[in-house]
């Protein structure tokens, strides 16, 4: 698959404080990539790197096979659309806000007018074209910012926490929009969220950021502990890990690597823990099962699988996974 971004050895620091330390990161072209992590994990910093706002302190960056260097940042920036967490709109009308993205790129006036009209139409903003941007609601402002970021046809759309503070209806509208632009315009979409499940269900690629470190999977199941021999011990649970791992204080397991069963399974999977279902939730046609088995595990299964299991909240259930499916770092 084509790569939109290739980062290697990328470091970034604010003063002496290292914020980002990424060995390798590849982001696929024309797909949806989610960056997940708690606040302060370095998500926004990484987005600023990907949007070419800040250059990294060390490491190399390639964008569509092109080496990115400090001298041509401006040009790379213009190939990206960036929607900030709480987007800033200019003190002007909605249509002027959108048009400014074209003015910056020195698009001739006649073309600008045409494109603005089309974009307003596409985002259902025709009625508020003349309204003053400062008077818009959060959702409306988000929409205008998105229109402003997309009007010039960028190759990449970057969004910082786009689903925060949105009501349900608008959330779904935005999801449809994202899927639509990926499918039709072959845009690469990168967004951050702290909702692991949401990231998993919407994105093709999920990366988790923890303390500036990147792990190539969602961190829905993330535990801290210490290694003793071939075991990783948290306060409450002891898990078997592949031999040879000597360092690391964190262990992560992808949610779809967890196997749920009513009885203890006879299989090659070396970790088996009995637990109790504490929560069942539906998201984008998948079921999130929360199991308390000493530690709390999150598994994602299909509705059909849930039917087959025939369990509900409060029931006993076994959680099994291979020692090789864990990621220790």
């Amino acid at each position: 698959m084509n790569c939109a971004y290739e980062l290697s050895g990328t470091r970034f620091a604010y003063g002496a404080e290292p914020v980002l330390d990424i060995d390798k990161l590849k982001i696929n072209h024309s797909g949806i990539t989610a960056l997940v992590g708690p606040n302060g994990a370095g998500k926004s910093t990484l987005l600023n790197l990907l949007a070419f706002i800040n250059p990294p302190a060390a490491g190399t960056m390639r964008f569509h096979e092109q080496e990115v260097s400090a001298t041509n940042y401006q040009l790379f920036r213009r190939r990206v659309g960036y929607v900030q967490q709480k987007p800033y709109l200019f003190h002007a009308s909605v249509s002027d806000n959108i048009e400014l993205a074209l003015k910056i790129r020195r698009v001739p006036k006649s073309e600008r007018r045409e494109q603005v009209r089309n974009t307003l139409c596409k985002f259902g903003l025709e009625k508020m074209a003349g309204r003053y941007a400062q008077g818009l609601s959060g959702g409306e402002a988000q929409k205008v910012a998105l229109a402003r970021a997309l009007i010039h046809g960028p190759e990449v759309l970057i969004m910082d926490e786009p689903f925060n503070h949105l009501d349900r209806a608008f959330r779904e509208l935005l999801q449809d929009l994202i899927r639509d632009i990926v499918e039709r315009d072959k845009v690469t979409v990168i967004f951050t969220t702290h909702d692991q499940l949401h990231a998993r269900t919407l994105a093709d690629q999920v990366f988790s950021l923890i303390d500036g470190h990147l792990i190539p999977l969602s961190a829905m199941n993330l535990f801290t502990g210490t290694i003793t021999g071939d075991r990783f011990n948290t306060d409450k649970l002891s898990m078997i890990i592949p031999p040879g791992i000597q360092t690391g204080t964190r262990l992560a397991i992808e949610a779809n690597q967890l196997v749920l069963s009513r009885q203890e399974l006879e299989s090659s999977m070396r970790n088996h823990f009995p637990g109790r279902i504490s929560k069942l939730a539906t998201e984008n046609l998948q079921i999130l099962v929360t199991v308390e088995a000493g530690e709390v595990f999150h598994a994602v299964i299909t509705p059909a699988a849930l039917q087959e299991l025939g369990v509900s909240i409060g029931d006993t259930i076994w959680v099994s996974f291979k020692s090789t499916s864990v990621h220790v770092f």
């Binding site: 600023n48 706002i53 401006q74 920036r77 990206v80 960036y82 900030q84 987007p87 800033y88 400014l100």
Partner: peptide, 11 residues
């Protein structure tokens, strides 16, 4: 946010 917005827009 103004300065970041301008930069991100490639100004």
């Amino acid at each position: 946010r103004l300065s970041l917005t301008c930069q991100a827009m490639g100004a």
